[in-house]
Design a protein around this nucleic acid. Structure first.
Lengths: 197, 197, 197, 197
DNA sequence: CATGAATGAGTATTCATTCAT
DNA sequence: CATGAATGAATACTCATTCAT
């Protein structure tokens, strides 16, 4: 078994390297601003090799988008112990979001930049909705319990994602240190924004 | 009155039409996603004409960015009656931001998308800083008076811009109605997030 | 009458200025290397004005070529006192050529560069032949009289034009001073090259 | 032997074909008169392929210029047996020049046309100087030995190059047959032009 | 007559994609 | 499987020419 795992095909290795290289480039310059040969070069493979792993440039962005969004969803939407008070659920979600954001700032920026790209296919879009649905349902539950004020769930999502993305972006430009302390301070502020009383 | 209207140079008219067309295209697809001939077609002029008004495609985005950022700065940073309480100043700023955002949603999305573009020149970047400086100084004043909690000014800016941009984006995708009511509700939430007590 | 002449239309003045500007530009960069707006700018007129005086860019080069070639032919092929010895006729021709070349180096370079241009029309080409014919007939006469050796007339033309053009070009690049002394020295050398004995 | 031939890379073959096609086009129409797609078509490759072998159109002309000038220099400036009389050295140089010119008339016309192009880089220009230096040093030596008259070396170069270029040009237009006989006749004429006595 | 804004075909160059090795 | 040379459509930009003022 161990041996099996060690055998991880070198092919997959290249796929990973390509996605990694693509992330680094797409994140700052966007889909149209990056040339396929450039991705190949950064990944250390030949141009033709890109097309062994991805049918088109479109397929590559979509694969990347899906991969990142899936990681994000998995990290943030992991099951939560039932019966937890709303405040704690909120904290859990926020801490998961910011932990992911601090560990994968490029992923956050990539997703924020490509959210509305015309090249995203239905499957990629579906993953965005999964997240939105979960977030909205948390808000609705909190409201039902009287812990969260009478706010449009979408507005709360906009606020939370905007805050996380904002912290990531400003941290990248050096005007802010996005550490645990900043995350906690923002959590406090956000909770005040939405909490009842 | 008639004479006044006749004085509007047709030349300026085309420049305006080009900027308008460029905004509509750049806003959704980004700088590299839009071809110059497309802008010309949308503006109803020939390709060559674009280059009569803007030296390069770069110059065109920068002109657009500057124009929008300037309008935004003018609208939001208009002088404020001295002696106003922090809560009222905050309200004024937020209402100006959201009024502008609701009247110029494409401008907001364009600015949010192109904030970090490599094609922005120094003058364009300078306008961004003007706004950031003003926002941070408001937060610092509020803190000094004890009205705003001990938060990093940059974090407050990230929160407010993120909220406004988020509302604009979600409104575009139809999941939210960005009207005066939504604006007021968000103002309330944001003030709770940063206010002392 | 004097007054009539003084009335030389300002229109002709512009035509002259355009030809002059065109010469300065075509001479170094060739037909395709020069843009019409550039010629207009150098002549101090609007682009559209160029087309009042010349139907096309082609027509402009041809007019220029003809004008220069005609001046050259007029200067060099002026009637020669009958009965002059071959050596003196040769001297006369050579001195006329080099005087023209020294006074109009740009004209020489322009003609040398554009001799074979595809844009030259039949009339322009005809002027070249006029010159070649005259030159060849001089050589034939000299040979008949026994003053010039048994050389192909075309070869003599090639030699003389090559020498004059070469002096003009090298003078332009600064490696040579093309003055009366250089002209005389070259005359001596050329005569030795072709003279009998 | 067969194996030797098989070793010729097809890549070099295309580079050679491009240079060959470029020579045929530039020679008559000049740098600005030829479009890159035309070169590609004549070489039998796609437009994009041109840029695999040459970074820009500029780089292509320079490569061509260098290649031709180098061939010319190699052919003409090959080492000469020491102790040879000036007359024989002169003959050797002239015969090398005309042999090259008769075998590569397009190269001669190309070099004559592009000598002063603004697109030539320093390395290309350097090759021109190499030739000029060698030619001038031959003249100076001849003068020192008393075999060549007191002439400016540059003037001699102008005369010889002008003669060779003239023969090539007139031969192209059909008014002259540039064969060994013509070459010999011109050699005789040129030697008379510069020899002492 | 003179102007210069407007045009769109044409230019050099890039880049997603294919395919023979 | 991997390669990178080859392709040609597409891009940013230029320029000869026209025409309303």
């Amino acid at each position: 078994m161990q041996t099996e795992k060690a055998k991880t095909k070198p092919a997959d290795d290249k796929r990973e390297k390509l996605l990694e290289a693509a992330l680094g480039l797409f994140e700052t310059r966007g889909y149209d601003g990056v040339a396929v040969p450039e991705i190949a070069a950064k990944a250390g493979v030949a141009v033709g090799t890109v097309y062994r792993y991805f049918e088109t440039k479109d397929a590559l962005v979509n694969a990347l988008y899906r991969s990142l969004k899936q990681s994000y969803n998995t990290a943030v939407l992991a099951p939560i112990e039932p019966g937890l008070p709303t405040r704690e659920i909120f904290s859990l979600y926020w801490q998961r979001m910011t932990l992911f954001a601090r560990e994968n700032p490029r992923a956050i920026r990539f997703m924020d930049l490509h959210h509305h790209g015309a090249y995203l296919d239905d499957e990629s879009r579906a993953l965005s909705k999964t997240y939105a649905k979960a977030a909205e349902s948390f808000v609705r539950d909190g409201r039902r319990r009287g812990d969260i004020r009478d706010l449009d769930p979408v507005m709360v999502v906009a606020l939370m994602w905007g805050a996380a993305a904002g912290l990531t972006k400003f941290s990248a430009s050096g005007s802010l240190k996005f550490d645990a302390h900043a995350s906690d301070a923002m959590e406090d502020a956000l909770w005040r924004a939405i909490a009842n009383d």
